[in-house]
Nucleic acid binder design. Structure first.
Lengths: 366, 366
DNA sequence: CTGTTAGCGCGTTCAC
DNA sequence: GTGAACGCGCTAACAG
């Protein structure tokens, strides 16, 4: 990567590098029109492109925005990433992406990487972990962000605050209404004539999963329901599918050798709630594999309201999180003036659809 | 972003900056063990993190890999992005992301941005455009990449070669088997007892769409079928939905006031093929909205085999592209030795599923 | 309004 | 094995 330099342009234009710099970038005082034109012409013929590294070194500001997600191919993260990207572009920043895999150790690595590149801001997205085996890495991650912020970096965490970390001062948190929305969803569902509830969650210690679980149980109790049994599985489609096969088998057996259409039976059906949409989709696939129909034999709900999944049949009852907006918010928070505003909050919305027997809305209005 | 510097570390360790540099990075000759330890200790207590900008300036290599996509929230692109990210990490590179919106003008902007940051490589993903209004921007894009490569940058385009551009020497192309796969899909489908075929495509001038269209028509003719009529719409879910409503209305009318289940009628049904999965999903939603059932009343097929859509019901017949692998390949191509290998090719696979009446495969095997 | 100087943080050739 | 000096490309003070 050896392109032409500013001094080459300056020489060709017959001026000093400083003047060339003033012309080519938005310096306070623009040089004379003639000179400016000469410089621009020289730059054009040489195909000059300013070296951002050198500029960064000189100005100590890189225009880089670091984004750390668990998996960029997961629609949850890619939608947030789109929001971040938009905000970044609006501010003239470039996005540095790290798709980690989800462990605090990898996240910490990414933070170090971005800190080394002197990113102006870092955004960390994805569930935290309270698993004991992650305690040390969590501490390292917190320390990394701590130091990054202490050195003047701006940072934001989307979801929950860092686990087991003290107050880090430059660090913002974009609070997601996981608990509240889950409560609302459970309360709404709890008031409907379902026979019983089951919950499908990720492994214990994944904060997002745990918090949504808590919210669900709370909502159920508010609705006068018993606490629901919880199945633990992996926090992805495959986990949902596995549990779907399991639960499907149990329900089918219980409903008799030929469960058939539960709708025909007419009785109330059970309702299974997964802690996110992707798991719910897998769950439904598993239930179907077991010969059950949704919502005739069993109702299902998810969480997130992933856009790509909105044409799914039966339409999935879920709790909508404004993912793209969340990404923008996080980016804005780190990019705008470092006010000591309180932690940002976001609103969600319960979406009742046919997977729990609610009337269908026209797909046009997705 | 004012962190501690190498000379601070050196001073604290009582050595020269040069020595500190040798210790902290993998220099050829490692200094004495005692000195090394002192330096490392100093670095640790100061929380030293090397300034990548300065290193880049000194070594003229940034370790940056630029990735340009049309929309990071689109599963097609996010899956490719995952592949790129993995390869990048393997090579110790960081990924610079640009989600452009899809126009050549924005892509050109992103290329300039990345060139300015002196990215070691640039990968451009997404359909090219041959629309006349894009001719100028296409030229600018080509010129930008041309210069970037001339300056020693490595670059790759995924999909089709740049439109209207001369041979750019450092530029690799990852050829996607769009035409061949489309032909194969159409040939397979054409041999099945469908009444007739319709094609749903993006606006004319989107190369990916156009090429797949050509392939389809060719495959149909190989199967002894008439060329199929083409509906043009937007290259996304909404476009598919709109056409679905349209075609659905026509088919329903033609089938009589109460089309009901075509399966009952027993006759052969029409088959509609969309140029990508996302459009196909929208299409199905629109058809359903018109009261038609897939595949009983009408068969539907897509292209890409998007992972998130694999649990969709009816399971979508499609042509699988190994998207993640494609991303890795593109990254490897730009990151590995600049051999003059011919343009890379990728294999795909026709996936027959229930949306065209083919037997269902267990969802476990997605 | 323009040119000169210095320095951003680091790698690297040279001498020692 | 270690230190001193220079340069990467650019911006920001300071003179003129």
């Amino acid at each position: 990567m050896a392109a032409s330099t500013l001094s080459e342009v300056a020489r060709l234009a017959g001026v000093s590098p400083a003047t060339a710099s003033r012309v080519l970038n938005g310096s306070a005082r623009t040089p004379g029109a003639e000179v400016a034109d000469k410089v621009r012409a020289a730059a054009a013929t040489l195909g000059y492109i300013a070296n951002a590294q050198a500029q960064a070194l000189a100005t100590s500001s890189t225009g880089l925005l670091g984004l750390i997600v668990h998996d960029i191919a997961d629609p949850y993260f890619s939608t947030i990433a789109r929001g971040v990207q938009q905000a970044a572009r609006l501010h003239g920043k470039a996005v540095l992406l790290a798709s980690t895999g989800g462990t605090p150790a990898e996240e910490q690595e990414a933070v170090a990487q971005f800190a080394g590149r002197r990113a102006d801001a870092i955004i960390v997205v994805g569930t935290r972990s309270t698993r004991p085996e992650h305690a040390q890495d969590n501490a390292a991650l917190a320390a990394g962000l701590q130091r990054y912020c202490a050195n003047g970096g701006r940072a934001a965490v989307v979801g929950q605050p860092l686990t087991g970390a003290p107050q880090i001062d430059g660090l913002q948190t974009v609070q997601l209404p996981n608990r509240e929305l889950a409560t609302e969803l459970a309360q709404t569902l709890g008031a409907m004539p379902f026979r019983e509830f089951s919950l499908v969650a990720g492994p214990p210690g994944l904060t997002t999963s745990d918090v949504r679980l808590e919210g669900f149980q709370h909502g159920l109790s508010l609705a006068g329901r018993e606490p629901a049994p919880v199945r633990r599985t992996s926090f992805d489609r495959a986990g949902g599918y596995a549990v779907g096969l399991q639960l499907g088998g149990e329900l089918a057996r219980e409903g008799g050798p030929a469960s058939g259409s539960g709708a025909a039976a007419g009785g109330p059906v059970p309702c299974i709630v997964a802690v996110n949409d992707v798991m719910a989709i897998g769950l439904i696939a598993g239930l179907r594999e077991s010969g059950l129909e949704v919502p005739a034999d069993v109702a299902v709900a998810g969480f997130d309201d992933i856009e790509t999944l909105r044409d799914f049949q039966p339409a999935l009852t879920t709790a909508r999180l404004p993912l793209e907006r969340i990404g923008m918010l996080a980016a804005e928070a780190t990019l705008s003036a470092p006010q000591d505003r309180p932690d940002l909050e976001v609103a969600g919305e319960v979406m009742l659809r046919f997977s729990t027997g609610s009337p269908v809305v026209s797909p046009a209005e997705r």
